[in-house]
Design a protein around this nucleic acid. Sequence first.
DNA 1: ATACGGCCCTGCGTGC
DNA 2: TGCACGCAGGGCCGTA
Length: 270
Amino acid sequence: MPELPEVEVSRLGISPLMIGQQISRITVRQPKLRWPVPQAIHQAEGYQILNIRRRAKYLLLDTEPGSIILHLGMSGKLRVLALNAPLQKHDHLIIALDNQHSLRLNDPRRFGACLWQGRDEPTLPLLTRLGPEPLTSDFDGERLYRLSRGRKQAVKNFIMDNAIVVGVGNIYANESLFLAGIDPRRQAGRVGQDKYQQLAEAIKQVLIGAIEQGGTTLKDFAQADGNPGYFAQQLRVYGRSGQACMVCETPVRAVVIGQRNSFYCSQCQR
DNA sequence: ATACGGCCCTGCGTGC
DNA sequence: TGCACGCAGGGCCGTA
């Protein structure tokens, strides 16, 4: 999936086409996503889309009675197409707009989600337990250092924990650790303050760079206009197992950490 | 509290 | 050509 940059690129792509438009109809073709799609999302029908926000990897389509929450899971894509454009396999959700266009959520693996957050309802737990956004000043090396004391898990898993910081998935965790020169297997509690400072900056830099490139397309991801993202060309370690490190030419190693494929340079990352 | 494994799905590449 | 298998951007939940 889509990690934070891909979700942000999706938001930027669909926003100018959707904000200010009125939702005419919502069609759920496949209600079995990560969670059952609730009937309550139909409350948005007839209302204008006031704003589209991102929180972690969730997108929130704000309307007067509440917000439609979308998550792209591992293979989700959002596109805005003409209302009469042919349906495609795995088009699970269609949000039709008054301007004869529609948003389609296409997600082969169905790990994505569509939920409803009513305006006057308590915030969904899945939103309240999230840590800070990585691209704000709420997130810095000091936070990483403080929360990691005593933690024995691998630093890579630590930065992928949504309670620590949101939006860092497998690709960008690998890339950030490379930039910061930290071995992804290292115990989180044994990484020093200076290294965490570098890591926080690396995370910000990598995420910003990926957003600027339209995200990373490995296979499924597409921007809202259907084009791929181009950050894959700038990946330094992810998926480059056996190839020369771009800095020192040592072959990039692949290891499994927390059931996820991980890549690092044994020379540059300690 | 922390940490790990399992699980929800489909599609694609690999190797026999 | 066909089939079985493993693996893929995520994240919740149950269990030690």
